[in-house]
Design a protein around this nucleic acid. Structure first.
Lengths: 219, 219
DNA sequence: ACCTGAACACCGTTCAAGT
DNA sequence: ACCTGAACACCGTTCAAGT
């Protein structure tokens, strides 16, 4: 009795294989495609099997995020200023999070588990060092920059997912805010949603703000 | 046949009552205590009943966050500088998110639905205006500041929840990072986790960085 | 040691029937 | 219009038994 499967001959399980499969599902179907049960099914087994290699979903998510980081192609920007280098680096990271739905979401709540994250951190620290930023500021600065990128990516992903309901309800609340009760909101309401689209203007603004601030704080 | 309940006589359902009940459950048991089913059970009904007043869990979460914002007691800091005012305001917001487990989590992924969020935004804009920040910078700055507060609160909450596993795994990875492969990480590894405890030093650092940066960017 | 089906204790949301 | 029990289609994790 030979069973015929669409998949090739079954490989033995391993954490690597589990993570890779989970990443593929995430890429294809977003974060909902990456449940323990669905990963198990894709590997032709029951969910209990995964727990030999991974302690829980959060841990799997952390591995998947790091695996995704491994797919990043670092920009080659030897000739540019340290700020430009940093911007390119963070922009590349942003695009990774933005293009693989689900990765942005994971990045907001999970510290990646693996060497690829160390590598990204190392590169950012190197650029900050080149900019003459002292070590405490650099250490805290990495965190702040990564957080910023994650959250902008997450915001843009959820904005893309549901053009109407959730976000434009909030938008409406601001645009319709009472002029006398909320005078300041009324004055800037249009600007609040500017640069919210494809343009990188607002993204760049945030990076610049943080870098300027770090330089100032560093003295 | 008189049924005796621990709860007082059953009030008719309303969105307000649902949100209040959800908030109470969140305060008591964190985000897991706030499922549609549990909120329904606390209200002595089935989960389907809630859908008359609320479209889905995310929407309920948005209302709950705004309800929480309504519990905020704004600091009275008329005499201080605009930066000090802003810091006090954001610190108060931080404490709210930090002390009600689950609120920090919601704040990272949900735009609050209601007037209380408008009120917080208005106050921040007022302070930025006093600091002479132009409107585009102010509009984008509010976002950046609130994002920062949410994420620091979320980080601290998850750090508090699980002292060992998830976070110290990441910590370990940094502390043990190979000296020759990751020279910059090696140089700053201790600083990366400094100020991660009770002290407000790091929180203040971040706010200062953002405010300095906004002022610079504003010219 | 590794693998697994079945079970446990949950979810959010919708349906169909009631008032 | 509002309310609701039951059903649908899922979750993550653990157990107990297999190899």
């Amino acid at each position: 009795m030979i069973s015929r499967r669409s998949r090739p001959a079954k490989q033995p399980l391993s954490r690597e294989l589990i993570v890779k499969t989970a990443y593929e599902l995430l890429k294809e179907h977003g974060i909902e495609g990456m449940s323990m049960r669905k990963v198990a099914k894709a590997l032709d087994t029951g969910p209990a099997s995964l727990y030999v290699y991974v302690n829980n979903v959060q841990e799997l998510s952390a591995y998947v995020l790091d695996y995704g980081l491994g797919q990043m192609v670092y920009p080659d920007s030897k000739d540019s200023t340290w700020k430009e280098q940093l911007f390119d680096l963070l922009h590349t990271y942003f695009l990774l999070l933005f293009e693989k739905p689900g990765l942005a979401e994971i990045s907001l709540s999970t510290i990646p588990q693996g060497t690829n994250f160390l590598q990204l951190t190392e590169r950012i620290l190197a650029a900050l060092h080149e900019g003459g930023i002292k070590s405490t500021s650099a250490a805290w600065g990495v965190d702040l920059l990564l957080l910023y990128v994650s959250s902008v990516a997450y915001e843009k992903v959820s904005w893309k997912k549901q053009g109407s309901s959730q976000i434009s309800d909030a938008k409406k609340a601001f645009l319709q805010a009472d002029k006398t009760q909320f005078p300041f909101i009324h004055r800037v309401k249009e600007e609040m949603f500017a640069g919210d689209t494809v343009s990188m203007e607002r993204f760049r603004w945030g990076i610049d703000v943080i870098l300027y601030g770090i330089q100032q704080e560093d003295n």
